[in-house]
Design a protein around this nucleic acid. Structure first.
Lengths: 169, 169
DNA sequence: CGCAATATATGCGTCGCGCATACAATATCT
DNA sequence: AGATATTGTATGCGCGACGCATATATTGCG
């Protein structure tokens, strides 16, 4: 396969940057905590009962970073920690009802931001765009938590047949 | 036009995030300064003689932030400040030869990271992908420096007919 | 000339993060 | 079972990048 053209590389890179900038900005306006805090809220909502270590892997943070992210979310009353019954070292982190509400709000903001950009693409081209995205994302599948990292801002309930393949054995 | 499907929104958002994550990581491994410092190096190289204020707009930083970014690059010997002949308030920022070298290295890293991902897309689909990206990016054109912000990591010398349109009147 | 506007610089505080370390619980090995 | 290693979590500490408020210099305008 030929290498992609320099123009496509630059434009595709710029597009990706622009999209994530927009999402980041939209979330930052509505959520008073920076860094990976918003991503943590979304990811925890997707896999309720995650351990701190799983948060760490999903967000690619240090352990201390993961502890502090959960701490911040806890201070805002968005998540709660509960001890594991089987292993008393691990803490399970879940969303509170306020956390659920906040998470839904953030997902809506991301959805709106991305949707607005996609409205510039014709219906026919969207089919191809989706296939291209599927191909690239499925090539990135490594381990389960690496996959969760990629989808950390997704509304996975509304993403049938996720190409990153969390559901694989 | 119909709204894009939820699946496309999520996958496209995840793809964009994954691409910018990869680029960010590749650059962070090779460049010892975080935040928007690498983007500043690239952007200054594209528009040599930028003022601090233009840096501020391009990177969407506070004025103090822009001063500090240039300061950091200066400490590493990558950029140099020179007084403007016409207006003694403004400082022109340009790359040193070491800055040029470093910039080229970073551009290569970004190019490689994005190129590897695009290799998963068929030649036919790349044509459509490029059109879709053109359409989205051209819709984002606002002002000249907003455009530069979008392309802040691009190798604009290798991006003929940039859809963000810095070259427009 | 006096006053507002523009461009840059600096003091200060904040926030998110990583490193090193400490502590608790479980697993393993003999 | 007891000693040791391993795993999971928490904390002290410092750093780096950033914004806000403010200071200073230069320009433009009445």
């Amino acid at each position: 396969m030929d290498d992609p053209s320099d123009r496509l590389i630059n434009i595709f890179g710029a597009l990706s940057q622009a999209v994530s900038d927009r999402v980041r900005l939209a979330i930052a306006e509505a959520f008073n905590a920076g860094g990976e805090t918003a991503a943590a809220l979304i990811a925890i909502g997707h896999a309720p009962g995650m351990s701190i270590g799983q948060v760490r892997q999903t967000l690619r943070l240090s352990h201390a970073g993961a502890v502090r992210v959960v701490e911040r979310l806890g201070e805002q009353g968005l998540v709660a920690k509960s001890p594991s019954p089987s292993d008393r070292r691990v803490v399970h982190v879940s969303l509170t009802s306020r956390g659920q509400v906040e998470r839904t709000k953030l997902l809506g903001l991301r959805n709106a931001a991305v949707s607005e950009l996609l409205s510039k693409v014709s219906a026919d081209d969207r089919v191809v765009l989706e296939r291209a995205a599927d191909n690239i994302l499925s090539s990135l599948f490594s381990d389960l938590h690496g996959g969760l990292a990629i989808c950390r801002l997704c509304d996975q309930a509304r993403c049938a047949d996720c190409p990153v393949g969390h559901h694989r054995p």
